[in-house]
Design a protein around this nucleic acid. Structure first.
Length: 418
DNA sequence: TCTGGGGTCCTAGGACCC
DNA sequence: TCTGGGGTCCTAGGACCC
């Protein structure tokens, strides 16, 4: 029988911090979003203290001090590296893996005796924990949606961290007490509407009919998946169709030159991502957001700009971004956020050339490859474009007051044993 | 003072084509 | 009295995910 599994890292960002700072073990620990804005990861101790996901940090700061909660700014260099270590081990156990997010992966396989697999997955769990320090939970069932449900059960109720359910009866007894809003694909809006119709649990949803007209095809698929009819296969990693780089500023920014620096930095980072997936973009969108405290919304907005030729050349994109930002900018407005989006992305190899432009793509790609290579070898921002401003002295840079070291990705930050 | 960042898919309606 | 049928593409908005 065809089965799906979901492997999920427990409290992932907190677990990454703990892996290199054992003193955090057993202590309430949380990780903040970019700009130290809100809570995006909580240890179990923090959850027990009642701190909610997404809680604005400024509102709970005092509470954190009172309760002795350990607070960290997000450290994506660390989390991304730990994630790839975990995924590498998973691939050694299972050939078919879909990396679904930084801390989750689906697997898919055939098995006639699923219950006998428990020991196998417990061993996977043990090896991941031993090799990386990251605890994981594993849920297995007959569709992706049910794998999500069993993963939930594994995390909350199973000492082993593994839950395998394939029998209809056993699945139903779980669905019966599973809130409809916790189902994968049922968000807050749908949850409210479903409950108003008396659909309160996953079992209610599984047994409901005629929801298709009101809730669309996505919900229809979810219902089928709850019945154990898989409607979603494992997906291969596909190149991104759009790439966004944007940040809120640590402080409000009103100076054009600073906005230009920020936008050029985001443009350059977006180009790096673009080249990493061997693509080119034909369109760029740049946006500015004014602080909510300036009454006028008119100063927030963006402009989309077609590029003369599909490209991944940072110089071309930066120059387009600069000309857009000049159009968007209003003197004296306090801006809180800016961003760059690359769109109409296609494969580098099948680009349409321009009859009237000089073909410089070969020289461009060599230059860009060289820059990317140097930065990969010697660290991000070893080489950068002048328009971005230097790595130091960016008065607009985001708030990140409590970041841990880059334990696994910077030579100077390697942990020391004493 | 003060609430992140990065994505995908679906649908409805309008413009336009033959 | 009274104006077809079928299709594509684009956009905006809504919903969801982590």
């Amino acid at each position: 029988m065809k089965l799906f599994g979901l492997i999920d890292c427990n409290n992932f960002y907190v677990s990454c911090e703990r892996a290199f700072q054992p003193r955090l073990e057993g202590k309430p620990t949380l990780v903040l979003s970019n700009n130290d804005g809100c809570v995006i990861a909580r240890s179990n101790e923090v959850k027990e203290l009642g701190v909610k996901m997404g809680a604005p940090f400024f509102k709970i700061k005092q509470f954190c001090t009172q309760e002795g909660i350990e607070v960290f700014s997000s450290n994506y260099a660390l989390y991304a590296d730990m994630s790839s270590r975990v995924m590498t081990i998973i691939r050694q156990f299972e050939p078919f893996v879909e990396v679904y997010s930084i801390d989750e992966a689906f697997i898919s396989f055939e098995s006639e005796h699923p219950e006998a697999l428990e020991e196998y997955f417990i061993r996977l769990r043990d090896i991941v924990l031993q090799s990386t320090g990251i605890p994981i939970s594993i849920g297995v069932s007959t569709s992706k949606t049910l794998a999500k449900v069993t993963n939930h059960v594994a995390k909350k109720e199973r000492e082993s961290g593994v839950c395998i359910l394939t029998q209809e009866g056993a699945i139903e007894s779980i669905l019966e007490r599973f809130p409809v809003g916790d189902i994968w694909g049922v968000g807050r809006r749908f949850s409210e509407r479903l409950q108003a119709l008396g659909v309160k649990t996953a079992l209610d949803l599984k047994n409901s009919v005629r929801l298709r007209e009101q809730f669309g095809v996505v919900m229809a698929r979810t219902i089928e998946e709850l019945k154990g009819v898989p409607c979603q296969a494992l997906e291969k990693a596909a190149p991104k169709k759009s790439i966004v780089c944007s940040r809120s500023f640590g402080e409000r920014v009103s100076v054009l030159s600073a906005l230009e620096e920020a936008v050029c930095l985001y443009a350059s980072q977006a180009c790096e991502k673009l080249r990493a997936q061997d693509s080119v973009a034909s369109c760029i969108h740049v946006f500015l957001e004014a602080s909510a405290f300036t009454a006028d919304k008119q100063y927030s907005g963006g402009v989309t700009y077609p590029l003369p030729q599909a490209t991944s050349d940072t110089r071309v994109i930066i120059s387009a971004a600069k000309s857009i930002i000049k159009r968007l900018y209003h003197s004296g407005v306090p801006y809180k956020k800016a961003g760059v989006m690359l769109m109409e992305i296609g494969k580098n190899s099948v680009t349409q050339g321009d009859l009237f432009l000089e073909n410089t793509s070969e020289a461009t790609s060599e230059l860009m490859q060289t820059i990317d290579g140097i930065n990969a070898r010697w660290g991000r921002s070893t080489l950068y474009f002048g328009a971005q401003g230097g790595p130091s002295g960016r008065e607009w840079k985001m708030k990140s007051d409590s970041k841990s070291r880059n334990f696994t990705s910077a030579w100077d930050d390697l942990p020391e044993a004493s």
